[in-house]
């Protein structure tokens, strides 16, 4: 991948099967993780990931640089996840899969606590959930998140504050139970 992207003719290389496969391998973890944390469903995450990379191949002409490519993938994945969620109504599926089971005596650093947190994130409203994923999985600034989700920065801050607050509260209840 580094070879493909470092070369001046990276777009030409990307159009070749071998070059594009390298790009997929380089970014698949990022794309898949965003979809996986959003849906908490492997089949859906795989489907969205494949769709995103196919769309990337079709839009290679519009990609100006390797950095732009990465940003394009994040934006495309985020928007596809939210659109798919709204269109197909995966709510019930996630609601059944994602409800945290009551478990007492959880401490910070506990793998069960982390799994509970993941499930709690998956239960957030879709836009707020994506903001949280971009912030904590992709380590992005609110400015960058605002650009990707096409919303004002203050709305991103608001989603983050409310999201974290909601998760603290829900986790507190789970830990007390």
């Amino acid at each position: 991948m580094a070879e493909v992207m470092a070369s001046a003719g990276w777009r030409t290389a990307a159009r070749e099967d071998a070059g594009f496969a390298e790009i997929v391998r380089e970014h698949q973890s990022m794309v898949y993780s965003i979809a996986w944390h959003f849906f908490r469903n492997r089949a859906l995450a795989e489907e969205i990931s494949q769709d995103v990379f196919l769309a990337l191949f079709r839009n290679l002409d519009g990609i100006q640089s390797p950095d732009h490519l990465e940003a394009w993938l994040r934006r495309s994945t985020s928007n596809r996840c939210i659109d798919a969620w709204r269109k197909k109504g995966y709510k019930e599926e996630i609601a059944l899969e994602g409800m945290p089971e009551p478990s007492g005596g959880l401490k910070m650093g506990d793998p069960i606590l982390r799994e509970t947190l993941r499930k709690l994130v998956a239960s957030l409203p879709e836009t707020q959930r994506m903001v949280m994923i971009l912030k904590y999985t992709e380590d992005m600034d609110p400015d960058e998140i605002a650009g990707i989700l096409n919303m004002p920065v203050r709305t991103v801050w608001s989603h983050l504050r409310r999201g974290v607050g909601m998760l603290r509260e829900k986790l507190g209840r789970v830990m007390e139970s």
């Binding site: 794309v31 898949y32 492997r42 650093g109 947190l117 949280m132 994923i133 904590y136 380590d139």
Partner: peptide, 13 residues
């Protein structure tokens, strides 16, 4: 930090 650890990247298939 716990949230960041919980939401870390997952390896794709």
């Amino acid at each position: 930090q716990e949230l960041k650890d919980a939401l870390k990247r997952e390896p794709a298939p």
